[in-house]
Simulated assay, not measured.
Amino acid sequence: MIWFLEGQSSQRDVLMGAREALPADVRIFASHRRQRPEITSQADVSLQEPLDNEERIDWILQTAREHGIKVILAGRIGGFYEARRALFEAQGITLVTGGMSMETFACVDDKSRFTAECEAAGLACVPAITATNTAELISAYETLAASGEVCIKPTVGIYGQGFWRFKAEADAFSCFADPDARQTSFQAYLHAYQQAAERPPMLVMPYMAGSECSVDMVCENGRVIASVGRRKEGLNQTFERDTDAVRLAIRAAEHFKCDGLVNVQTRDNDNGQPHLLEINPRYSGGVGYTRHAGVNLAGIFATRRLGLTEPETNWRNNVCVKAITVAVSATA
């Protein structure tokens, strides 16, 4: 039996991929802190997790013991579970968090440290200057602006929260008129930044105009077993493998000793050369799309962890997908 703890909204897709690959007699457990039957109903057994993190640990261990569950995937807060790995191992449970130790999370969660680690390892990454106050922010901007467009984001965060591009022609109101464009002038940003005495550390970076590649992968003990690159083209996404971006992502995941269903983001520069943006030691929101490319990553993960035959990979060339909203029953 295998248990998928609360993850991103794509937890539903992960469950469907695992169910497709696993024998019918293998029971799948799924849980979420909220009432999310549209997600957990894809499993054989649906559970609701306690809201409190510490209470959740005791509940997970007790539930796993009662049902004889041997493999647990932490979809969210992987670092929180990783710090308590010994509790799971003491009960003979294989805990999969996204990393093999707290070192992985320490390196990838802090984007400033991540950048330094990549540079030291010879992994091409988007260069960045960390700013912790107004003087450092101005200095970093002036240094990078001499060579081209500049952008900024927090050193810690997900979903692109806090990311902004500095455009000289952007008026002060543009970020309110069209926030999804993520564009503002540096002066407008600086004015807002100075309104508080303290701000979290920020990364100031050159903006790379090329496209992004989101690489979903299955990792085991710091080794990549299977991977698929996804690249957005307008509202659509295409798939790739054995490209410079995918190879760079694989090198990064293995360097940082990732373990589980993991996502690595890269972005191309003006010359089409990929650079690392970040590593997410969890599955991505679009991991389920990869099944359209003929690669069931969730199924590969689940079967291998349970010692079963993994699903065949039948790569499909020139596939293009588009996400749509579909209504599903949310009855518990």
Rank of each mutant, 00 (worst) to 15 (best):
W164V: 00
I2V: 03
Q42R: 05
R305Y: 07
V71N: 03
C258I: 02
L137P: 01
A116P: 02
E240H: 00
T243S: 11
V45L: 08
F176N: 06
S10Y: 08
W164D: 00
S10G: 03
R12S: 08
Q62M: 15
R113T: 06
D109P: 10
T40M: 10
T243E: 13
F166P: 02
K153C: 13
S112V: 12
W59N: 11
S227R: 04
Q91V: 01
G260F: 07
M16T: 12
V264H: 09
I72V: 13
R251T: 02
G272M: 05
D270K: 12
S284L: 12
T94A: 00
Q91L: 14
I300Q: 14
Q11C: 09
A120P: 00
G99P: 04
A135M: 05
E240A: 00
C320E: 15
V246F: 10
I2H: 01
Q265I: 05
P206E: 10
N317A: 14
A74T: 00
L5N: 02
E169H: 09
A64G: 08
N318K: 14
S112Q: 12
Q42W: 08
F186W: 03
G272E: 03
V246W: 11
G294W: 12
T132W: 11
Y189K: 13
V326N: 10
Q91N: 09
K153R: 15
E310L: 03
T238I: 10
A196L: 14
L5W: 07
S31Y: 06
M217D: 09
P127D: 11
V321L: 05
A24H: 12
G285R: 11
A131R: 04
F163K: 03
R267Y: 08
V262R: 12
P201K: 07
I69P: 02
L5F: 06
R76K: 15
P274G: 04
D270N: 09
Y189D: 08
S139A: 12
G286L: 08
D44M: 07
R19S: 13
E240W: 00
V295L: 12
F88Q: 05
G160C: 01
F301R: 00
D44C: 04
A252G: 04
L190S: 07
G307T: 07
I60K: 11
G17N: 10
E117Q: 15
E20G: 04
G17I: 07
